[in-house]
Amino acid sequence: MPRAKRGVKARRRRNRILKVASGFRSGRRKIWRRAVEAVHHAWMHAYRGRKQKKRDMRRLWIVRINAATRPHGLSYSRFIHGLAQSGIEIDRRALAELAVNDPAAFGVVVDSAKAALAA
C-alpha cells in the first residue's frame, strides 16, 4: 500500500486556521499551535457573545420601556401586567421602538394598559 503523506489536506487545514487568525497579534497569527488555540478561544467567545447580545438587548429594551412608562404614572412591571390583561401582544423590542420614536403612540398603549388595570 502506498504511503499517504497528507500534504495537500494538512496544508489546506492549516491555511484555513491561519487565515482566520490573520488579524491576531504576534505569534498567535503565525505559529500553528498558538493560532489553533487562539482561534478556538475566539470561536468560543463569539458563540457566547451571540447569546450575550440577545440578553443585553432585552435589558436595554426593558430599561427604555420603564423610562417611558414612569411619566405616565406606571412602573414597568405594572405596565407589562396591564398589557397582558388588555390582550395586547407587542414584544419588548417593538415597545421600546415606540417609546423612543413615537411617544404619542406609546402613550395610547400605556393608556390601554392603565384601563385594563383599573377594570
Rank of each mutant, 00 (worst) to 15 (best):
K9Q: 14
K54V: 10
R64Q: 11
R16M: 09
A104P: 02
D102W: 08
A96T: 02
M44F: 13
A4I: 14
H81Y: 08
Q85F: 05
V39I: 01
R29I: 00
A105Q: 03
R11F: 12
G82N: 03
A115P: 04
R14E: 07
V100M: 05
V20I: 01
R48G: 04
A94M: 08
S86H: 10
G49F: 12
R11I: 11
V100S: 02
T69W: 04
N101T: 15
K51R: 13
D102C: 04
R11G: 10
F79K: 00
V39E: 00
A68C: 06
A35F: 01
R12C: 06
Q52K: 12
V110S: 01
V109H: 01
D56C: 08
S77F: 14
R33I: 12
T69H: 02
N66Y: 03
R28I: 01
G107L: 00
D111N: 05
M44P: 04
V39L: 09
L60N: 14
P71M: 02
N66I: 01
N101E: 15
V100D: 05
R14P: 03
F106C: 03
A94G: 04
I62N: 11
R14C: 04
A10E: 06
I80G: 01
R50Q: 07
I65N: 00
A38N: 09
R28M: 08
K53E: 14
A113S: 10
S22W: 06
N101Q: 13
R93N: 10
R16W: 08
V108Y: 07
V100C: 06
F24H: 03
V8T: 12
A21Q: 07
G87K: 15
I62F: 08
H40F: 15
V109R: 00
R34M: 10
A115S: 14
K54T: 08
R34C: 05
R13M: 11
R58H: 06
I65M: 07
R70Y: 05
R11M: 11
I62C: 08
H72A: 08
R14F: 04
Q52Y: 11
R16F: 10
Q85M: 07
V39A: 03
E89K: 05
K5H: 06
L98I: 03
R16L: 10
V109G: 00
W61V: 10
R14S: 08
Y47H: 12
M44A: 14
A113H: 07
V39Y: 01
G27Y: 10
A4N: 15
I62M: 11
A113C: 06
R13D: 07
A105R: 09
I80T: 02
I88V: 02
V36R: 00
W43K: 11
L18P: 02
Y76A: 05
G73P: 02
A35G: 01
A113F: 09
A68H: 02
H81Q: 13
S77Q: 13
Y47W: 12
M57C: 10
A10T: 13
V63A: 14
N66K: 10
W61M: 11
R48H: 07
G27S: 14
R14H: 06
A113E: 05
R3Q: 06
R16E: 05
